[in-house]
Simulated scan of single mutants.
Amino acid sequence: MRLVFLSALFWFAADQLSKWAVVHWMRLAEIGHIAVWPPFLNFHMGWNTGINFGLFSGSPDAMRWILIALAVSISAWILWWAKTGLTRPVALLSAGAIVGGALGNVLDRVIYGAVADFLNVSCCGIVNPFAFNLADIGIFLGAFGLLIFADAKKITT
């Protein structure tokens, strides 16, 4: 479980520190857009009150608390799974990435009422209109890691 907690702490801290640095210290919340390495990397401020790609944004404030409860419940379930069913180190690190990322976004929802998204990546003539954050990267990598590396229980007959 130590690997799960270290991974969760890493992703949570990286997410929150990056948000503080970019949103507040670099004043992205006021400026709105910073060209970092155009067109590949831009900081574009977005406050996501919904889920991925802004789905359910503009919903009543109750949705905020439902999403918080859902993220905490999924994180608790992943911690239980990591304790009772995961043994491979990469799977434990993946579980921690999901938990740390989810709790980073939960903290945003509690403090700001929305998730602070700022990373915008485009390439090869394709302009990406969406922004995301390091918590989202942790959640994605963690889900991918669990999909690939989670221990499969052998079924005996």
Rank of each mutant, 00 (worst) to 15 (best):
G54Y: 03
W80K: 12
I66L: 14
F56D: 00
M63Q: 04
I74D: 04
I74M: 09
F53G: 13
A82P: 07
S75F: 13
W65L: 06
W65E: 06
I66S: 07
L67M: 08
A69V: 02
S73V: 11
I74N: 03
S73Q: 02
I78P: 12
V72G: 10
A71R: 14
L55K: 06
A62M: 05
W65K: 06
S75H: 11
M63E: 02
W80D: 09
A62S: 07
S75Y: 12
A76V: 06
I78K: 11
L55E: 03
R64N: 09
W65I: 07
S57W: 03
L70R: 09
D61L: 04
P60M: 05
K83P: 02
S57D: 05
V72F: 14
I74Q: 04
A69R: 01
L70S: 12
I74W: 03
W77Y: 08
A76Y: 01
S57Q: 11
W65H: 09
G58K: 08
G58E: 10
I66Y: 09
M63P: 01
A69W: 00
A62P: 00
L55T: 11
S73T: 14
L55C: 05
K83E: 14
D61I: 03
W65V: 06
I78C: 11
D61K: 04
W81N: 14
L55I: 11
S73F: 14
W80G: 06
A76S: 04
A71L: 13
R64C: 06
A69T: 03
M63H: 04
L67P: 00
S75L: 11
S57T: 10
D61S: 10
M63S: 07
P60C: 09
W80T: 07
A69E: 01
W77E: 00
I66R: 07
N52R: 12
S59F: 13
N52G: 15
W65F: 11
W77H: 01
F56T: 00
S73A: 15
P60W: 08
W81F: 15
F56W: 01
M63L: 10
A62E: 03
M63N: 06
S73W: 12
W77N: 01
